[in-house]
Design a binder for these strands. Structure first.
Lengths: 231, 231
DNA sequence: GAAACCAAATCGTCATACTTTTAATCCCGC
DNA sequence: GCGGGATTAAAAGTATGACGATTTGGTTTC
């Protein structure tokens, strides 16, 4: 999943530094400086920079150097960029953005899932709703998190829309993030759990409207909770 | 906006070939072969491949070569990938996916825009609604398209959500695409125009619900029309 | 003071050599 | 024959030196 080799090492240093704002817009790096700093060859530096350039995090210009681009230009949907931003100082803003995105996408995905899910997906969704209930009651947060991620992933997948499905990873990162950074109640809300069961039932029954409504309530709740914690 | 230099030339060849399915999943390229085919050095090939790898269109492995990855792995939100897919054989599927995405995102963005738009944005939106009416009546399709793109871009921008704002380019590509490929009526629908005016008015008045509703109707209409044309 | 020119800095590309990984093959013992 | 471990070769990964191209900024000249 990660980018390999020496360029990967550079990315792992530069990406987070830029995404977190540590290297601010307009900051200039020189290729030679990076070679020395990381003890690698031009080849490696150039390839790493090319990748960052592909994400529009930096632009490389002759006689100028490698300049950090304004945030507005970044490929904010790139999973790496999202992860880097979540890991750094930009986390609150990133969580808010993702919250709004989820609020738009997940209810729509749930509605589509109710129409297009396979039998197997419906089964797995129901099973996960049960697991979710049990791990919540046992206050087993790691297991709960994993089931929650799987649940939302299946809904997105079952929407049969490749773009929604691609947001699985992103939603997973959000859920992981808010648990890791203790932005969640210690014991998951019973109400939220019930809503997950409702989504599963609605998808199984093919009730798009109900699935959409329940999912919207889930994400609205998460977003409200987030805003509470961040203010 | 484009990637520059010789690697850019390679990208412009390989990207569309992969995105269109011409180079199918599992197809293998060798770096040396690409060097010869394009008459460029190793450096250039490697950098182009790195970029494609960053989009997860290909993976490079020792002793094997550069293999085209399954579509499910692609960074389907990358503007380049979207453009490449829209240009090739995958266009219908891409337009459908984007249609669903717009249906989820644009109404939500309109609601946020009604709350957060600046005075200038509200003014420009109203002005564009007028322009839209006039160019539609004059059946000036190129001008109409430009105004339509600008209109949706401003709404997304005014949502004050960086991820929604980033979809400006994508929505623009969709609108351009459906005009170019004659998936639109020759004379824009008067009803759709009125809805654009309604969105503008609602945003100006700060009426989030109304803005969302009108925008949803616009996108639903576009999606319905699209499905009609594609079936 | 302005325009033309020149020089330096920096990335961009090429060619080549060497290293590392890994798939496939060969060969041996059973 | 058949399994399995050593061998080989193919391909990408990395390093390095040389040169080209372009942009910036100062300097000269009128």
């Amino acid at each position: 999943m990660e980018i390999q080799g020496l360029p990967g090492r550079l990315l792992a240093e530069l990406g987070p530094a830029i995404a977190s704002g540590e290297l601010a817009e307009g900051a200039v790096l020189r290729a030679e400086e990076l070679e020395e700093r990381f003890g690698v060859s031009r080849t490696v530096v150039r390839e790493a920079v090319r990748i960052l350039e592909g994400m529009h995090l930096v632009a490389s210009r002759r006689r100028v150097g490698i300049t950090v681009q304004p945030k507005a230009d970044w490929d904010v949907f790139d999973p790496l960029v999202i992860r880097w931003r979540l890991a750094g100082a930009d986390r609150p803003a990133q969580l808010r953005s993702l919250g709004s995105l989820r609020l738009a996408v997940e209810p729509a995905a749930a509605a589509l899932a109710a129409r297009h899910a396979t039998d197997d997906e419906r089964r797995r969704l129901s099973a996960l709703a049960v697991e979710l209930t049990m791990t919540a009651r046992a206050a087993d947060l790691p297991a709960f998190l994993q089931h929650d991620i799987d649940f939302h992933a299946i809904v997105l997948q079952a929407s049969r829309n490749e773009m929604f499905a691609h947001l699985r990873e992103t939603v997973g990162a959000v859920l992981t993030g808010r648990t890791e950074y203790h932005l969640m109640p210690h014991q998951p809300e019973p109400y939220a759990i019930r809503l997950h069961r409702e989504v599963a039932e609605a998808v199984c029954a093919g009730d798009a409207e109900q699935a959409e409504r329940a999912m919207r309530t889930i994400v609205e709740g998460a977003l409200a909770e987030l805003n509470e914690q961040l203010d």
